[in-house]
Amino acid sequence: MKSFLIVFCLIGFWQTDSKAQQVRFVAKYGNEMLNTFPNTVKGKNGDTIEFSVLKFYISNLEFRKNGIPVYSPKEQYHLVDFGIEHSAVLNFDARKKIHFHEFVFDIGIDSATNSAGALGGALDPTVGMYWTWQNGYIHFKLEGKSSRCFARNHQFEFHIGGYYSPFNTLQKIRIPAQKNIESTIEIDLAILMESIDLATVHHIMSPCTEAVRFSQQFPFIFYSAKR
């Protein structure tokens, strides 16, 4: 019995000692917050845009100081899904207080993991981020409707994936971090939507040149929230 108590005390001690590190993703359209999905906004071109799905993988996250990684969470792959409450908030147990200037992470899943067979957790095929008629994870999914989109029901669907050349769409993101325990990373969908002509490009559903071009916008849409 006594030994149990000691164990409990130890666990308690560890917990208070460890530092919860939180990274929160927030979706925006320009200055407008998109708190819940689906969400309708006035587009910059006078159209209306309804965003229904925003899902992407964050992987190989590193907290860096002067370019050197000071902390990399054990959990390597995270699915951020704005349709599921709390999934846009990642909590890490950093064990000790860390000082960092920069976040470095990938949007998507690296090629080794893409070829590794069936995997579980965030990578389980049931989460709907794996292509089935060919192989590979979908790194980033954005779906919705816009009056500017000439497709059926004005719908657009961007499923961005591809892990082999010349259609590798994995993108590394580096962004300066605010030095605090709770960090917020904003994603500006306006930048993304303005980079494409919805009248002609409304469906990207496989690794292709269009997908590569789309993914090249990722480094410009993620940035640290200024407080």
Partner: peptide, 10 residues
């Protein structure tokens, strides 16, 4: 189209 036996059934 498929790179791994595990993923074939999908």
């Amino acid at each position: 189209a498929i790179n791994h036996l595990d993923m074939q059934a999908l």
